[in-house]
């Protein structure tokens, strides 16, 4: 057993656990996008950042990949963590503004305005689908391709892979959920969680980047005033 301090509370957890597992076991919520029980930890979305160490030498690490250490001081919701997490969420929202999952997380973290240009990438490169395909479906049909800003996920040569059984697990697990949400017949979509997705409520050029997930809606506020 390993003893560490979670938000000042002395706890004992099993050796080999990650900080994320320990914190969730003890009831401290940490948001994640790229983490899934049953799949190997990946540390791509960085949403699970926590602050470790003691003042003045603390640092931010991704809790889903950091194993617990004896006597480690962990803060899961310090000001620095919240600030970093909010920034990450804003950036994620910029790349995938239509994802219900990310929108919900953003509103949970009190993000009221989108400062970044919306890019509608529909993928946050979290690698969940790649790991799902490889580790649970044993198919290895999709993977990462290229690098840098051209990095993308897909099949080799962009053609139907011989290894793909069309099980749909990659679509099911995707947090950006574009394929499920933009399914042509929403009532037959796999999850249906996208039905409440609403377009910008103000049809004006200068407000086109504002979405109604913000509470209160910035565009509506401006329209009222």
């Amino acid at each position: 057993m390993i003893t560490l301090y979670l938000n000042g509370l002395e706890v004992s957890v099993e050796e080999g656990m990650t900080i994320l597992e320990a914190a969730r076991f003890m009831g401290f919520p940490i948001p994640t996008l790229c983490h899934q029980d049953g799949l190997s930890p990946y540390g791509a979305c960085r949403l699970c950042v926590v602050e470790i160490g003691e003042e003045p030498k603390t640092k931010l690490v991704s809790s889903c990949t950091y194993p617990v250490e004896e006597g480690l001081h962990v803060r899961t919701a310090s000001q620095r963590v919240m600030h970093a997490r909010r920034m990450i969420l804003e950036l994620l929202l910029g790349s995938c503004p239509q994802s219900k999952t990310i929108q919900d997380l953003a509103s949970m973290y009190n993000i009221r305005q989108q400062r970044f240009r919306q890019e509608y990438e529909n993928c946050i490169l979290c690698g969940l689908c790649v790991r799902m395909c490889e580790e649970q479906m044993m198919a290895k049909a999709i993977g990462f391709r290229s690098r840098g800003e051209n990095r993308s996920i897909g099949t080799p040569f962009d053609i139907q892979s011989e290894d793909c059984r069309r099980c749909g697990a990659c679509i099911y697990i995707c947090p950006a959920c574009q394929l499920r949400c933009t399914y042509t017949e929403p009532e037959r979509a796999i999850c249906g969680s996208c039905v409440n997705l609403s377009p910008p409520c103000l049809e004006k050029e200068e407000f086109k980047d504002m979405m109604c997930y913000m509470e209160p809606c910035v565009a509506c506020e401006i329209k009222k005033g």
């Binding site: 290895k140 049909a141 999709i142 993977g143 391709r145 690098r147 080799p156 290894d163």
Partner: peptide
């Protein structure tokens, strides 16, 4: 090795 891994190397 799988074509996916190979393709990742070739495009990287």
């Amino acid at each position: 090795c799988s074509l996916v891994d190979l393709y990742a190397v070739a495009t990287f």
